[in-house]
């Protein structure tokens, strides 16, 4: 996730190119899903809940693809680091915590998906503590996702250029 590190993006090996493509499209799907999750009135509660559960797998995949960064930054946690690296680490950790909390609270107030999976009846009374927290955490997720995009801006632009250049080359 350290987008400013320098490397040549041209002449990528085939597995590397495949990995870039998968990572890029996974991130795009994750981003679009997050936006849809913020608009319950558009998606409806049913789709909102199932999408919320699907996002667990997407977040795990996103983190697995970023594992080398996670491992390196966690090892270097107590070592001397730039302010940017530290902020990036805490930003990503906060985002992970907020997403986890939002998903967990969403599971606890679920009216469709969880009752369907557990064959249990949905709770008649809404637990307002969890509902309020779910709402607050969703807002934090949006804010932190924006900052996450901001700090990985260079990576994103380079990935867009790389993926679409190859797409253009193939269509021409």
């Amino acid at each position: 996730m350290d987008a400013f590190s320098v490397l040549e993006t041209r002449a990528l090996a085939k597995p590397t190119r495949w990995r870039l493509k998968v990572t890029f499209w996974l991130d795009v799907t994750l981003l679009v899903s997050f936006i849809f999750l913020q608009t319950v009135s558009f998606t409806g509660l049913f789709l909102h809940e199932w999408l919320g559960l699907a996002i667990v797998a997407m977040v795990f995949a996103h983190l697995l693809f970023s594992w080398s960064w996670i491992a390196t930054q966690s090892r270097r946690f107590f070592a001397r680091q730039s302010v940017r690296s530290r902020i990036n680490f805490f930003l990503n950790l906060s985002l992970f915590a907020a997403v986890t909390g939002a998903i967990f609270s969403g599971i606890l107030i679920s009216q469709h998906a969880i009752p369907a999976l557990t064959q249990a009846k949905a709770a008649a009374e809404m637990d307002w503590r969890w509902d309020t927290l779910h709402n607050q955490l969703s807002n934090y997720v949006l804010l932190l996702a924006g900052f996450h995009l901001a700090i990985n801006w260079e990576w994103m632009l380079a990935a867009v250029q790389n993926v679409f250049r190859r797409f253009r080359e193939r269509t021409l």
Partner: peptide
């Protein structure tokens, strides 16, 4: 927080 110059033509690591 910009640690390196991102002037035109400088390649970016895709990790």
């Amino acid at each position: 927080l910009l640690p390196v110059s991102t002037r035109e033509g400088q390649p970016i690591r895709l990790r």
